[in-house]
């Protein structure tokens, strides 16, 4: 009965969503001619090349035009990591065997060889974030994947939490201080016009954007590694005696 009501509700919802989105033709040019700058996207496409000298327009939007958004997003990631740690809290003395059986020595040696290459790929992705697809979030996620490989392959691999804390807070301080410097010199938070621009499509270009993206990359890498480490270190318990039937 409940299933019937839910399916009816979803049918009504799907009908109206379909009607609404068929009004937006797929693949039509809604940006207008970029010269008249009818929409926000056309403005960004027109002005990114001259004003901030960044090849990747998405990077320019994420870091510069909507830099406050990115700051809030990184803060949300930090809060999620902290909240996860406090939810899955355990005392320090109860050490946890992460995996029941040890992995094979081939896997251990191979992951020791692969780990620097994965970290290298992540660093490459967020250093070249203003030239190619990629950036701080992607590179940070790739680095976290490399740490995950080591955490799975070795039973006793410890990520140093004090190092994670230091990297995370230094990257955050770098981000906020670049924004505040723009506020002092230029008048708005994350103002980009007071850095040397450089040439389009070269590695050193775009003013403060590559520096901010590198900071975001380290911060995201530290946060995601912390999340995975906490999740992997939870104690696996057999089914506990439940106290739910006491009423």
């Amino acid at each position: 009965m409940k299933k019937f009501f839910v399916i009816a509700l979803l049918a009504i919802l799907g009908f109206y969503l379909t009607i609404a989105f068929l009004q937006i033709p797929f693949g039509q040019n809604r940006l207008g001619q970029p010269q008249d700058e009818a929409t926000v996207g056309a403005y960004y496409l027109n002005n990114t090349k001259e004003k901030s000298a960044v090849s990747n327009v998405v990077t320019a939007i994420v870091v510069n035009y909507r830099g406050f958004d990115t700051l809030g997003e990184v803060t949300v990631l930090f809060l999620a990591s902290t909240g996860l740690a406090s939810i899955l809290y355990r005392r320090k003395e109860e050490e946890v065997e992460r995996i029941n059986k040890p992995s094979s020595s081939l896997l251990q040696t191979g992951s020791k060889f692969l780990f620097p290459l994965v970290v290298l790929l992540g660093i490459y992705v967020f250093i070249h974030g203003h030239l190619t697809p990629g950036g701080g979030f992607q590179g940070g996620a790739i680095i976290a994947t490399g740490f995950l490989l080591m955490l799975i392959a070795y039973q006793k691999y410890h990520v140093s939490h004090s190092m994670l804390t230091w990297v995370e807070s230094l990257a955050g301080v770098l981000f906020v201080s670049i924004g505040l410097w723009g506020l002092i010199t230029g008048g708005t938070f994350l103002e980009n016009s007071y850095f040397p621009k450089g040439v389009l499509n070269s590695l050193i270009s775009g003013g403060a954007i590559p520096i901010i993206y590198i900071a975001v990359g380290f911060k995201v890498a530290a946060e995601l590694t912390g999340v995975l480490d906490i999740l992997l270190n939870t104690k696996e318990e057999k089914s506990v005696p439940s106290n739910q039937n006491e009423k």
């Binding site: 990629g134 979030f137 976290a144 999340v227 995975l228």
Partner: peptide, 18 residues
């Protein structure tokens, strides 16, 4: 391509592992 790279790194690897 930016969104594809993010989805590949986060959606495939990290969410599945969690």
């Amino acid at each position: 391509p930016d969104v594809a790279l993010t989805e590949a790194a986060i959606g495939i690897a990290l969410t599945t592992i969690a």
